[in-house]
Design a protein around this nucleic acid. Structure first.
Length: 440
DNA sequence: CTGGGGACGGGGCCC
DNA sequence: TGGGCCCCGTCCCCA
Protein backbone atom coordinates (compact mmCIF):
# COMPACT_ATOMS: atom_id res chain seq x y z
CA UNK A 1 0.00 0.00 0.00
CA UNK A 2 1.29 3.39 -0.92
CA UNK A 3 0.68 6.53 1.03
CA UNK A 4 0.78 9.29 -1.50
CA UNK A 5 1.42 12.05 0.99
CA UNK A 6 4.59 10.44 2.26
CA UNK A 7 6.88 11.98 -0.34
CA UNK A 8 5.38 15.35 0.21
CA UNK A 9 5.84 15.18 3.97
CA UNK A 10 9.34 13.85 3.58
CA UNK A 11 10.39 16.71 1.38
CA UNK A 12 8.59 19.13 3.63
CA UNK A 13 10.58 17.81 6.54
CA UNK A 14 13.83 18.14 4.65
CA UNK A 15 12.93 21.66 3.70
CA UNK A 16 12.18 22.40 7.34
CA UNK A 17 15.53 20.98 8.31
CA UNK A 18 17.21 23.13 5.75
CA UNK A 19 15.51 26.23 7.07
CA UNK A 20 16.59 25.36 10.58
CA UNK A 21 20.06 24.41 9.41
CA UNK A 22 19.61 20.92 10.77
CA UNK A 23 21.90 18.19 9.41
CA UNK A 24 23.00 20.42 6.57
CA UNK A 25 26.26 19.06 5.26
CA UNK A 26 26.79 21.25 2.29
CA UNK A 27 27.38 24.97 1.91
CA UNK A 28 26.82 26.73 -1.35
CA UNK A 29 28.37 30.12 -1.76
CA UNK A 30 26.70 32.30 -4.36
CA UNK A 31 28.20 35.73 -4.77
CA UNK A 32 29.03 35.89 -1.11
CA UNK A 33 25.73 34.54 0.14
CA UNK A 34 25.84 31.17 1.86
CA UNK A 35 23.12 28.59 1.33
CA UNK A 36 22.93 25.53 3.53
CA UNK A 37 21.61 22.30 2.13
CA UNK A 38 21.76 18.54 2.29
CA UNK A 39 24.15 16.76 0.05
CA UNK A 40 21.82 13.92 -0.70
CA UNK A 41 19.06 16.26 -1.76
CA UNK A 42 21.35 18.22 -4.04
CA UNK A 43 22.82 15.04 -5.37
CA UNK A 44 19.38 13.78 -6.30
CA UNK A 45 18.30 17.02 -7.93
CA UNK A 46 21.16 18.24 -10.03
CA UNK A 47 23.55 16.62 -12.43
CA UNK A 48 26.14 19.19 -11.52
CA UNK A 49 25.94 18.42 -7.80
CA UNK A 50 25.84 14.75 -8.55
CA UNK A 51 29.23 15.03 -10.19
CA UNK A 52 30.60 17.43 -7.65
CA UNK A 53 29.47 15.49 -4.64
CA UNK A 54 30.35 12.09 -5.92
CA UNK A 55 33.87 13.36 -6.39
CA UNK A 56 34.15 15.18 -3.10
CA UNK A 57 32.63 12.31 -1.17
CA UNK A 58 35.48 10.14 -2.34
CA UNK A 59 38.01 12.59 -1.15
CA UNK A 60 36.67 13.67 2.18
CA UNK A 61 33.90 13.25 4.60
CA UNK A 62 34.05 16.88 5.56
CA UNK A 63 31.16 19.20 4.75
CA UNK A 64 31.19 20.19 1.12
CA UNK A 65 31.37 23.76 -0.05
CA UNK A 66 30.49 24.87 -3.54
CA UNK A 67 30.95 28.33 -4.91
CA UNK A 68 29.10 29.87 -7.82
CA UNK A 69 29.59 33.10 -9.67
CA UNK A 70 27.50 32.12 -12.64
CA UNK A 71 24.19 33.29 -11.22
CA UNK A 72 22.78 35.48 -8.53
CA UNK A 73 21.75 34.48 -4.99
CA UNK A 74 18.15 35.30 -5.91
CA UNK A 75 18.26 32.88 -8.75
CA UNK A 76 19.78 30.18 -6.62
CA UNK A 77 17.08 30.78 -4.03
CA UNK A 78 14.48 29.95 -6.66
CA UNK A 79 16.39 26.84 -7.66
CA UNK A 80 16.93 25.68 -4.10
CA UNK A 81 13.32 26.30 -3.17
CA UNK A 82 12.36 24.18 -6.12
CA UNK A 83 14.69 21.41 -5.05
CA UNK A 84 13.15 21.34 -1.58
CA UNK A 85 9.54 21.93 -2.51
CA UNK A 86 8.99 21.01 -6.13
CA UNK A 87 7.69 24.49 -6.71
CA UNK A 88 9.43 26.79 -9.12
CA UNK A 89 8.76 30.47 -8.66
CA UNK A 90 9.16 31.79 -12.15
CA UNK A 91 8.54 35.31 -13.25
CA UNK A 92 9.07 37.03 -16.51
CA UNK A 93 12.05 38.64 -14.86
CA UNK A 94 13.85 35.66 -13.49
CA UNK A 95 13.01 33.00 -16.03
CA UNK A 96 16.04 33.62 -18.19
CA UNK A 97 18.50 33.52 -15.37
CA UNK A 98 16.79 30.59 -13.70
CA UNK A 99 17.00 28.70 -16.96
CA UNK A 100 20.62 29.61 -17.33
CA UNK A 101 21.35 28.48 -13.78
CA UNK A 102 19.39 25.28 -14.29
CA UNK A 103 21.39 24.64 -17.39
CA UNK A 104 24.57 25.19 -15.43
CA UNK A 105 23.37 22.87 -12.69
CA UNK A 106 22.08 20.33 -15.18
CA UNK A 107 18.51 20.34 -13.98
CA UNK A 108 16.62 19.37 -17.08
CA UNK A 109 13.17 19.53 -15.52
CA UNK A 110 13.70 23.12 -14.55
CA UNK A 111 14.98 23.97 -18.00
CA UNK A 112 11.93 22.51 -19.68
CA UNK A 113 9.63 24.31 -17.28
CA UNK A 114 11.39 27.57 -18.08
CA UNK A 115 11.08 26.95 -21.78
CA UNK A 116 7.41 26.22 -21.40
CA UNK A 117 6.99 29.35 -19.35
CA UNK A 118 8.60 31.44 -22.04
CA UNK A 119 6.68 29.86 -24.88
CA UNK A 120 3.42 30.18 -23.04
CA UNK A 121 4.17 33.76 -22.20
CA UNK A 122 4.55 34.47 -25.86
CA UNK A 123 1.35 32.66 -26.73
CA UNK A 124 -0.42 34.64 -24.12
CA UNK A 125 1.11 37.84 -25.37
CA UNK A 126 -0.28 37.12 -28.77
CA UNK A 127 -3.66 36.23 -27.35
CA UNK A 128 -3.67 39.23 -25.13
CA UNK A 129 -2.95 41.32 -28.14
CA UNK A 130 -6.27 40.21 -29.51
CA UNK A 131 -7.95 40.75 -26.20
CA UNK A 132 -6.39 44.13 -26.05
CA UNK A 133 -8.58 45.30 -28.81
CA UNK A 134 -11.68 43.56 -27.63
CA UNK A 135 -11.77 43.76 -23.87
CA UNK A 136 -12.06 46.59 -21.52
CA UNK A 137 -9.69 47.27 -18.72
CA UNK A 138 -12.15 45.89 -16.24
CA UNK A 139 -12.42 42.61 -18.03
CA UNK A 140 -8.81 41.79 -17.94
CA UNK A 141 -7.50 43.44 -14.87
CA UNK A 142 -7.75 41.53 -11.67
CA UNK A 143 -6.26 42.81 -8.50
CA UNK A 144 -2.89 44.08 -9.49
CA UNK A 145 -1.05 42.44 -6.64
CA UNK A 146 2.24 40.75 -6.98
CA UNK A 147 1.46 37.41 -8.43
CA UNK A 148 4.48 35.48 -9.47
CA UNK A 149 3.85 32.54 -11.63
CA UNK A 150 4.43 29.55 -9.49
CA UNK A 151 5.10 26.24 -11.10
CA UNK A 152 4.85 23.06 -9.20
CA UNK A 153 6.96 20.40 -10.70
CA UNK A 154 6.66 18.00 -7.86
CA UNK A 155 4.78 14.86 -7.14
CA UNK A 156 1.69 16.79 -6.26
CA UNK A 157 1.26 17.11 -9.95
CA UNK A 158 0.77 13.41 -10.22
CA UNK A 159 -1.48 13.59 -13.19
CA UNK A 160 0.42 16.24 -15.05
CA UNK A 161 3.88 16.63 -16.39
CA UNK A 162 5.98 19.11 -14.43
CA UNK A 163 5.92 21.81 -17.01
CA UNK A 164 2.20 21.91 -17.44
CA UNK A 165 1.13 22.06 -13.89
CA UNK A 166 0.55 25.10 -11.81
CA UNK A 167 -0.10 24.99 -8.20
CA UNK A 168 -3.79 25.60 -7.74
CA UNK A 169 -3.27 26.65 -4.17
CA UNK A 170 -1.47 29.71 -5.35
CA UNK A 171 -4.39 30.84 -7.39
CA UNK A 172 -2.04 31.68 -10.14
CA UNK A 173 -2.09 31.17 -13.83
CA UNK A 174 -3.15 28.44 -16.14
CA UNK A 175 -0.47 27.40 -18.54
CA UNK A 176 -1.77 27.14 -22.02
CA UNK A 177 -5.00 28.74 -21.00
CA UNK A 178 -6.20 31.99 -22.34
CA UNK A 179 -5.70 33.99 -19.21
CA UNK A 180 -2.31 35.13 -18.16
CA UNK A 181 -2.52 37.96 -15.82
CA UNK A 182 -0.14 37.20 -13.08
CA UNK A 183 3.29 38.47 -13.70
CA UNK A 184 5.10 39.74 -10.75
CA UNK A 185 6.24 43.26 -10.55
CA UNK A 186 9.89 44.00 -10.26
CA UNK A 187 11.64 47.26 -9.76
CA UNK A 188 12.78 48.54 -13.05
CA UNK A 189 16.34 48.29 -11.90
CA UNK A 190 15.94 44.56 -12.14
CA UNK A 191 13.56 44.61 -15.00
CA UNK A 192 16.14 44.57 -17.70
CA UNK A 193 18.70 42.57 -15.86
CA UNK A 194 18.94 40.16 -18.72
CA UNK A 195 19.11 42.51 -21.62
CA UNK A 196 21.90 41.87 -23.96
CA UNK A 197 24.64 44.40 -24.15
CA UNK A 198 23.86 44.94 -27.74
CA UNK A 199 20.22 45.51 -27.12
CA UNK A 200 20.91 47.77 -24.26
CA UNK A 201 23.32 49.70 -26.28
CA UNK A 202 20.88 50.11 -29.07
CA UNK A 203 17.89 50.51 -26.90
CA UNK A 204 19.43 53.10 -24.74
CA UNK A 205 20.37 55.07 -27.78
CA UNK A 206 16.92 54.68 -29.23
CA UNK A 207 15.22 55.58 -26.01
CA UNK A 208 17.40 58.51 -25.28
CA UNK A 209 16.75 59.81 -28.69
CA UNK A 210 13.10 59.07 -28.61
CA UNK A 211 12.20 60.10 -25.12
CA UNK A 212 15.12 62.22 -24.15
CA UNK A 213 15.71 60.11 -21.09
CA UNK A 214 18.88 59.41 -19.20
CA UNK A 215 19.72 55.93 -18.19
CA UNK A 216 20.29 55.48 -14.49
CA UNK A 217 23.62 54.01 -13.59
CA UNK A 218 22.60 52.05 -10.54
CA UNK A 219 21.76 48.69 -11.89
CA UNK A 220 22.36 45.52 -9.97
CA UNK A 221 24.71 43.31 -11.80
CA UNK A 222 24.31 39.61 -11.74
CA UNK A 223 27.26 37.62 -12.84
CA UNK A 224 26.07 35.04 -15.23
CA UNK A 225 27.14 31.96 -17.02
CA UNK A 226 28.78 32.10 -20.38
CA UNK A 227 25.48 31.58 -22.05
CA UNK A 228 23.95 34.35 -20.15
CA UNK A 229 26.83 36.72 -20.36
CA UNK A 230 25.73 38.18 -23.59
CA UNK A 231 22.25 38.53 -22.28
CA UNK A 232 23.08 39.99 -18.95
CA UNK A 233 23.02 43.53 -17.86
CA UNK A 234 26.39 45.09 -17.41
CA UNK A 235 26.63 47.72 -14.71
CA UNK A 236 25.63 51.13 -15.80
CA UNK A 237 24.12 49.79 -18.90
CA UNK A 238 20.76 51.26 -19.54
CA UNK A 239 18.13 49.75 -17.31
CA UNK A 240 15.09 51.87 -17.31
CA UNK A 241 13.75 53.42 -14.25
CA UNK A 242 10.28 52.50 -13.19
CA UNK A 243 9.14 55.83 -14.40
CA UNK A 244 10.75 55.34 -17.70
CA UNK A 245 9.12 52.02 -18.18
CA UNK A 246 5.83 53.60 -17.44
CA UNK A 247 6.50 56.40 -19.83
CA UNK A 248 7.60 53.97 -22.44
CA UNK A 249 4.50 51.90 -21.91
CA UNK A 250 2.41 54.96 -22.34
CA UNK A 251 4.25 56.14 -25.35
CA UNK A 252 4.28 52.79 -27.02
CA UNK A 253 0.81 51.72 -25.98
CA UNK A 254 -1.23 54.84 -26.03
CA UNK A 255 -4.49 52.99 -25.66
CA UNK A 256 -5.63 54.09 -22.29
CA UNK A 257 -7.63 51.78 -20.17
CA UNK A 258 -5.45 48.81 -20.75
CA UNK A 259 -3.44 47.95 -17.72
CA UNK A 260 -2.94 44.84 -15.79
CA UNK A 261 -1.53 46.58 -12.84
CA UNK A 262 2.04 47.55 -12.33
CA UNK A 263 3.91 44.58 -13.51
CA UNK A 264 1.76 43.28 -16.24
CA UNK A 265 3.02 45.59 -18.90
CA UNK A 266 6.03 43.38 -19.09
CA UNK A 267 4.72 40.94 -21.64
CA UNK A 268 1.97 43.07 -22.97
CA UNK A 269 4.41 45.51 -24.44
CA UNK A 270 4.70 43.16 -27.34
CA UNK A 271 1.57 44.76 -28.66
CA UNK A 272 0.98 46.56 -31.83
CA UNK A 273 1.80 50.18 -31.41
CA UNK A 274 0.26 53.16 -33.03
CA UNK A 275 3.14 55.54 -32.95
CA UNK A 276 5.49 52.98 -34.38
CA UNK A 277 3.34 51.51 -37.09
CA UNK A 278 6.24 49.82 -38.77
CA UNK A 279 7.76 48.41 -35.59
CA UNK A 280 5.13 46.09 -34.37
CA UNK A 281 6.47 43.31 -32.23
CA UNK A 282 8.00 44.02 -28.90
CA UNK A 283 10.18 41.53 -27.10
CA UNK A 284 8.64 40.50 -23.77
CA UNK A 285 12.05 40.23 -22.20
CA UNK A 286 13.63 43.45 -23.29
CA UNK A 287 12.72 46.66 -24.97
CA UNK A 288 13.62 45.47 -28.40
CA UNK A 289 10.98 46.00 -31.06
CA UNK A 290 10.89 44.30 -34.42
CA UNK A 291 8.73 44.60 -37.47
CA UNK A 292 7.85 40.98 -37.99
CA UNK A 293 6.76 38.13 -35.83
CA UNK A 294 9.41 35.95 -37.40
CA UNK A 295 12.03 38.46 -36.38
CA UNK A 296 10.74 38.40 -32.83
CA UNK A 297 10.90 34.64 -32.83
CA UNK A 298 14.45 34.87 -34.02
CA UNK A 299 15.32 37.52 -31.49
CA UNK A 300 13.85 35.54 -28.60
CA UNK A 301 16.44 32.87 -29.07
CA UNK A 302 19.04 35.26 -27.79
CA UNK A 303 17.09 35.31 -24.51
CA UNK A 304 16.18 31.66 -24.30
CA UNK A 305 19.58 30.44 -25.36
CA UNK A 306 17.87 28.05 -27.68
CA UNK A 307 20.20 26.75 -30.38
CA UNK A 308 18.18 24.58 -32.66
CA UNK A 309 20.70 24.39 -35.47
CA UNK A 310 23.57 22.05 -34.75
CA UNK A 311 26.55 21.81 -37.02
CA UNK A 312 26.85 18.12 -37.53
CA UNK A 313 30.37 18.51 -38.72
CA UNK A 314 31.72 19.86 -35.46
CA UNK A 315 28.77 19.73 -33.06
CA UNK A 316 28.61 23.43 -32.46
CA UNK A 317 25.07 24.73 -32.15
CA UNK A 318 23.65 27.93 -33.52
CA UNK A 319 20.59 29.96 -32.82
CA UNK A 320 20.09 30.80 -36.45
CA UNK A 321 20.23 28.81 -39.60
CA UNK A 322 22.03 31.51 -41.51
CA UNK A 323 24.73 31.62 -38.88
CA UNK A 324 25.05 27.90 -39.13
CA UNK A 325 25.31 28.00 -42.88
CA UNK A 326 27.81 30.78 -42.71
CA UNK A 327 29.82 28.84 -40.15
CA UNK A 328 29.65 25.76 -42.31
CA UNK A 329 30.79 27.54 -45.40
CA UNK A 330 33.62 29.21 -43.59
CA UNK A 331 34.86 26.39 -41.43
CA UNK A 332 33.96 23.20 -43.21
CA UNK A 333 33.72 24.05 -46.86
CA UNK A 334 36.74 26.28 -47.36
CA UNK A 335 34.68 28.70 -49.38
CA UNK A 336 37.12 31.51 -48.97
CA UNK A 337 39.36 31.67 -52.01
CA UNK A 338 42.18 32.90 -49.81
CA UNK A 339 45.31 31.13 -48.70
CA UNK A 340 44.99 30.78 -44.98
CA UNK A 341 48.68 31.29 -44.46
CA UNK A 342 49.80 34.03 -46.81
CA UNK A 343 46.32 35.49 -47.37
CA UNK A 344 46.84 35.55 -51.09
CA UNK A 345 44.00 34.88 -53.44
CA UNK A 346 44.05 31.27 -54.61
CA UNK A 347 42.30 29.46 -57.41
CA UNK A 348 41.92 25.87 -58.41
CA UNK A 349 45.30 26.06 -60.05
CA UNK A 350 47.23 28.04 -57.48
CA UNK A 351 45.97 26.38 -54.34
CA UNK A 352 44.32 23.41 -52.75
CA UNK A 353 41.89 22.66 -50.00
CA UNK A 354 43.41 21.33 -46.84
CA UNK A 355 41.40 19.36 -44.37
CA UNK A 356 42.29 19.43 -40.71
CA UNK A 357 39.83 17.36 -38.75
CA UNK A 358 36.51 18.71 -39.94
CA UNK A 359 37.99 22.06 -40.79
CA UNK A 360 38.75 22.94 -44.33
CA UNK A 361 40.69 25.83 -45.67
CA UNK A 362 42.75 26.72 -48.65
CA UNK A 363 46.48 27.00 -48.98
CA UNK A 364 48.39 28.19 -51.98
CA UNK A 365 50.80 25.77 -53.53
CA UNK A 366 53.78 27.66 -52.12
CA UNK A 367 52.49 27.51 -48.57
CA UNK A 368 51.61 23.88 -49.04
CA UNK A 369 55.13 23.12 -50.08
CA UNK A 370 56.53 25.23 -47.29
CA UNK A 371 54.43 23.46 -44.72
CA UNK A 372 55.59 20.18 -46.12
CA UNK A 373 52.13 18.78 -46.18
CA UNK A 374 51.94 18.24 -49.87
CA UNK A 375 52.92 14.65 -49.52
CA UNK A 376 49.86 13.55 -47.64
CA UNK A 377 47.87 11.24 -49.77
CA UNK A 378 44.17 11.34 -49.96
CA UNK A 379 41.83 9.00 -51.61
CA UNK A 380 39.86 11.23 -53.88
CA UNK A 381 37.42 8.47 -54.62
CA UNK A 382 36.18 8.51 -51.08
CA UNK A 383 36.58 12.21 -50.52
CA UNK A 384 33.72 14.44 -51.47
CA UNK A 385 32.97 17.96 -50.45
CA UNK A 386 31.08 18.50 -47.27
CA UNK A 387 27.53 19.37 -48.05
CA UNK A 388 25.22 21.65 -46.26
CA UNK A 389 21.67 20.32 -45.83
CA UNK A 390 19.32 21.74 -48.35
CA UNK A 391 15.98 23.26 -47.67
CA UNK A 392 13.63 20.78 -46.11
CA UNK A 393 16.60 18.82 -44.95
CA UNK A 394 16.79 20.49 -41.58
CA UNK A 395 16.65 17.37 -39.53
CA UNK A 396 18.69 15.14 -41.69
CA UNK A 397 22.27 14.43 -41.00
CA UNK A 398 24.93 16.20 -42.89
CA UNK A 399 26.97 14.21 -45.18
CA UNK A 400 30.01 13.87 -47.32
CA UNK A 401 28.90 13.98 -50.92
CA UNK A 402 25.86 12.52 -52.54
CA UNK A 403 26.73 8.88 -52.38
CA UNK A 404 26.72 8.39 -48.67
CA UNK A 405 24.32 11.11 -47.84
CA UNK A 406 22.07 9.23 -45.51
CA UNK A 407 24.34 7.36 -43.20
CA UNK A 408 27.63 9.07 -42.76
CA UNK A 409 27.84 11.13 -39.66
CA UNK A 410 30.79 13.40 -39.41
CA UNK A 411 32.41 13.31 -36.07
CA UNK A 412 35.08 15.61 -34.79
CA UNK A 413 37.88 13.27 -34.05
CA UNK A 414 40.29 15.85 -32.86
CA UNK A 415 42.79 14.60 -35.33
CA UNK A 416 45.38 17.04 -36.42
CA UNK A 417 46.15 15.17 -39.57
CA UNK A 418 45.97 17.28 -42.61
CA UNK A 419 44.32 16.04 -45.70
CA UNK A 420 44.72 17.85 -48.93
CA UNK A 421 41.87 17.63 -51.27
CA UNK A 422 41.76 18.43 -54.91
CA UNK A 423 38.56 20.31 -55.40
CA UNK A 424 36.58 21.49 -58.30
CA UNK A 425 36.69 25.21 -57.99
CA UNK A 426 34.07 25.85 -60.59
CA UNK A 427 31.48 26.50 -57.96
CA UNK A 428 33.87 28.52 -55.94
CA UNK A 429 34.83 30.50 -58.95
CA UNK A 430 31.23 31.39 -59.44
CA UNK A 431 30.93 32.25 -55.82
CA UNK A 432 34.12 34.18 -55.98
CA UNK A 433 32.59 36.63 -58.37
CA UNK A 434 29.97 37.41 -55.84
CA UNK A 435 32.31 37.65 -52.92
CA UNK A 436 31.99 40.94 -51.19
CA UNK A 437 34.74 42.37 -49.01
CA UNK A 438 33.04 41.51 -45.76
CA UNK A 439 32.36 37.92 -46.61
CA UNK A 440 34.66 35.81 -44.62
C1' DC B 1 48.56 45.70 -27.09
C1' DT B 2 46.80 44.76 -31.53
C1' DG B 3 44.84 42.72 -35.53
C1' DG B 4 42.43 38.87 -37.56
C1' DG B 5 38.98 35.30 -37.38
C1' DG B 6 34.75 33.69 -35.93
C1' DA B 7 30.39 34.20 -33.63
C1' DC B 8 26.32 36.64 -33.08
C1' DG B 9 22.43 39.93 -33.25
C1' DG B 10 19.79 43.28 -36.00
C1' DG B 11 17.97 44.80 -40.30
C1' DG B 12 16.41 44.34 -44.83
C1' DC B 13 15.31 42.06 -49.10
C1' DC B 14 13.56 38.33 -51.93
C1' DC B 15 10.78 34.40 -52.83
C1' DT C 1 3.61 35.83 -43.66
C1' DG C 2 7.55 33.08 -42.89
C1' DG C 3 11.94 31.33 -44.18
C1' DG C 4 16.29 31.99 -46.25
C1' DC C 5 19.91 34.81 -47.32
C1' DC C 6 22.97 38.63 -47.11
C1' DC C 7 25.06 42.79 -45.10
C1' DC C 8 26.68 45.30 -41.23
C1' DG C 9 28.36 46.29 -36.69
C1' DT C 10 30.08 44.53 -32.49
C1' DC C 11 32.15 41.42 -29.28
C1' DC C 12 35.30 37.88 -27.89
C1' DC C 13 39.19 34.99 -28.33
C1' DC C 14 43.66 34.03 -29.70
C1' DA C 15 48.12 34.43 -31.84
Amino acid sequence: MEISSHQFHLLQQLNEQRRQDLFCDCSILVEGKVFKAHRNVLFASSGYFKMLLSQSSKETSQPTTATFQAFSPDTFTVILDFVYSGKLSLTGQNVIEVMSAASYLQMTDVISVCKTFIKSSLDISEKEKDRYFSLSDKDVNSNGVDRSSLYSAGWRAESSPPHSHLNPEQGTCMMGGSVWSNFSYYPASQRNAHLSKHENRQDSVKKSRHLGLQQPPDIPHYKSSKLEDRASEPPGHSAQSEEQVQIEAEVESPHVGYQYGQGSDFFLNSFLTDDLPRMRFKCPFCTHVVKRKADLKRHLRCHTGERPYPCEACGKRFSRLDHLSSHFRTIHQACKPICRKCKRHVTELTGQVVQEGTRRYRLCNECLAEAGIDSIRIDLDTEAPLEFPQEGDKDSRWHYGEDNKSDVEIVEDGSTDLVIQQVDDSEDEAEEKEVKPNIR
